[in-house]
């Protein structure tokens, strides 16, 4: 469903991604690990179309459609979801209003009928419970005064409500204690299905104890330098990223 070929991208004058290849099939969970500065967050931003991130060459397709031919919001409506590492606050805009507008936009693009306010509220309440956020959070401003953990759970709530095709989780584990991490992982696991793909970007192996990946890739200096199964994450955890330098590509990146 997601096919990235030879992707080169830069921010301002600095080339960050230097020939990245990745294929994600429906139902698969891919973990992307790597040292700081390897380009992990850049990948999510380039795919979702953040301003300032420029594609130099290469392609990325979601369900056969070129992502780079679409506006940011069109990519979202096509089913691309990015869970942010640092979710931003939008003061005064209630979570409920924001979520409803977002779900409406995505549903409309899919050709689904709009949900009534009552239907939406009912759904939102269930999801709130699922990610362990009190229902009052629907009335609060988007991420306004939320703790780090609450922000992340709010991201997962959005993901569940939007039911995307492909989810990119950008270091969703950063800053979470173990309980919050479990809630987030449970939320993600509940959404795993045969027609949905995940790209889980993380610095630490810890998250992968809870979200079991099918594939693990190591991103270093803008390229995937190593790919393998879940065991690769354990090796990295045990040996550190410097170990990579001594073990050049044994499994070619897809």
């Amino acid at each position: 469903m997601l096919s990235i070929k030879n992707l080169h991208a830069r921010v301002e004058d600095k080339t960050i991604l230097k020939g990245l290849n990745l294929d994600v099939k429906p139902g698969e969970v891919h973990a992307i690990m790597g040292p700081n500065g390897a380009g992990k967050s850049t990948l999510g931003y380039v795919l979702s179309g953040r301003d300032g991130y420029e594609v130099e060459q290469g392609s990325a397709e979601l369900d056969g459609h070129s992502l780079f031919d679409m506006e940011t919001e069109e990519r979202a409506r096509a089913g691309l979801f990015l869970a942010f590492q640092y979710p931003v606050e939008i003061p005064g805009v209630s979570n409920m209003e924001f979520l409803k507008a977002s779900v409406d936009a995505v549903r409309e693009a899919r050709g689904d009928s709009a949900l009534s306010s009552a239907e939406f509220l009912k759904l939102a309440r269930v999801v709130c419970k699922q990610v362990n956020l009190p229902v009052e959070f629907l009335k609060r401003g988007v991420n306004e005064g939320f703790s780090g953990g609450e922000k992340k759970r709010n991201e997962i709530m959005q993901m569940i409500l939007l039911a995307p095709r492909l989810c990119i989780l950008d270091e969703t584990d950063s800053g979470l204690d173990i309980d919050a991490l479990k809630v987030v992982a449970d939320g993600v696991n509940s959404q795993r299905s045969s027609d949905r793909g995940f790209v889980v970007v993380t610095h630490y192996q810890r998250l992968l104890d809870y979200i079991k990946p099918d594939f693990v890739h190591v991103l270093s200096d803008g390229k995937i330098v190593k790919s393998g199964g879940p065991e690769l994450a354990k090796e990295l955890e045990a040996q550190g990223y410097s170990w990579l330098a001594d073990h050049p590509d044994e499994v070619p990146a897809e």
Partner: peptide, 13 residues
């Protein structure tokens, strides 16, 4: 930019 990006990433024009 962050706010705009969040909104657009959630499908809002």
């Amino acid at each position: 930019d962050d706010q705009m990006f969040l909104c657009r990433q959630r499908g809002l024009d």
